[in-house]
């Protein structure tokens, strides 16, 4: 469990990025952190693995105060996948890129081999095993970044703007991967502007603005609240907007956007 208690964070240039954050992210939960640019979303997630330490207040991860632990130690349980793949790929092959973190964390050779094979197969990267990561396409690079983090099987996966620059197929793959993590009981945190991507997952939504938490609740409640959406400069998901426009209320979580669409079409036909 990740717990933020009255967390303030001031950047070295004097800008207050977080103000009085109180937040609990529970095990097995899918949480989406949304908000406009500069709302403090990335700053918030960088506190979870100790990359940033709070100026005031406390962040505890599985009971450990992040100020008292190294980033490497915290990262073993908290896997952060950053937005720009070009900011982390450096190895001469896809295989070595995935192995990088596994060797840093000191896994045994047989475990490394198993995890490597799982990651290459699951993310459809086996055919690029010996290829330089620099030669991959944008979507493949993103997949490699995610594979290199999920390879060490962290308890919490944090995805910072995962859909930026991704086409429809890649987004679908991402969605499937998140659903797989959820089915394994893992905690997933998504930082994104992409409401259409978040909506089908029906996560808990934390809305941020000006370094503060503006709202925290179920996706359906948050995305229906016009005032919160306006303050956070967000727009309602198209499907919800359409459903509301037709006075139809979606029931429960949809496994994906297509099921939601099919459900809506079915309701429309039946009415």
């Amino acid at each position: 469990m990740i717990e933020f208690s009255s967390v303030d964070f001031e950047h070295p240039n004097g800008v207050m990025a977080l103000r009085g954050i109180n937040l609990q992210i529970r095990t097995g939960e899918v949480t989406a952190i949304v908000g406009e640019n500069g709302a403090g979303k990335t700053t918030l997630v960088k506190h979870t693995n100790g990359l940033l330490k709070p100026t005031h207040g406390k962040v505890s991860v599985f009971g450990v105060d992040t100020r008292k632990e190294s980033v490497a130690h915290l990262s073993k349980r908290i896997g952060v996948i950053f937005q720009n793949p070009d900011h982390q790929l450096f190895s001469d092959s896809v295989e070595n890129e995935i192995k990088f973190a596994l060797t840093n964390f000191g896994f045994q050779e047989d475990v490394i081999a198993n995890r490597l094979n799982w990651a290459l197969n699951f993310f459809d990267l086996e055919k690029y095993r010996s290829t330089s990561p620099m030669l991959l396409s944008g979507g493949e690079k993103k997949r490699l970044c995610i594979a290199s983090v999920l390879a060490w099987d962290p308890d919490v996966t944090i995805l910072d703007e995962p859909t930026v620059g991704q086409d429809f197929v890649q987004k679908e793959r991402l969605m499937n991967m998140i659903q797989m993590l959820v089915s394994q009981g893992k905690t997933v945190v998504i930082v994104s502007h992409d409401i259409e991507f978040i909506w089908p997952l029906q996560p808990r939504v934390v809305v941020m603005a000006g370094g503060k938490i503006l709202a925290d609740g179920r996706a359906e409640d948050i995305f229906r609240n016009e005032e919160i959406l306006r303050k956070a400069r967000l727009i309602k998901p198209q499907l919800l907007d359409l459903a509301d426009g037709l006075r139809v209320k979606p029931a429960g979580a949809f496994p994906n956007v297509y099921d939601a669409k099919r459900w809506l079409i079915h309701r429309l036909k039946s009415e």
């Binding site: 990262s75 982390q88 990088f100």
Partner: peptide, 27 residues
């Protein structure tokens, strides 16, 4: 940003002697 990404993958820049620290800057 690159340092943040690599530290999140277990890279420890402050560990070891001057030569191993230099090697750790390759990523």
């Amino acid at each position: 940003q690159i340092m943040d990404a690599q530290k999140s993958r277990g890279l420890e820049l402050q560990k070891g002697n001057i030569f191993s620290r230099f090697r750790r800057f390759i990523p």
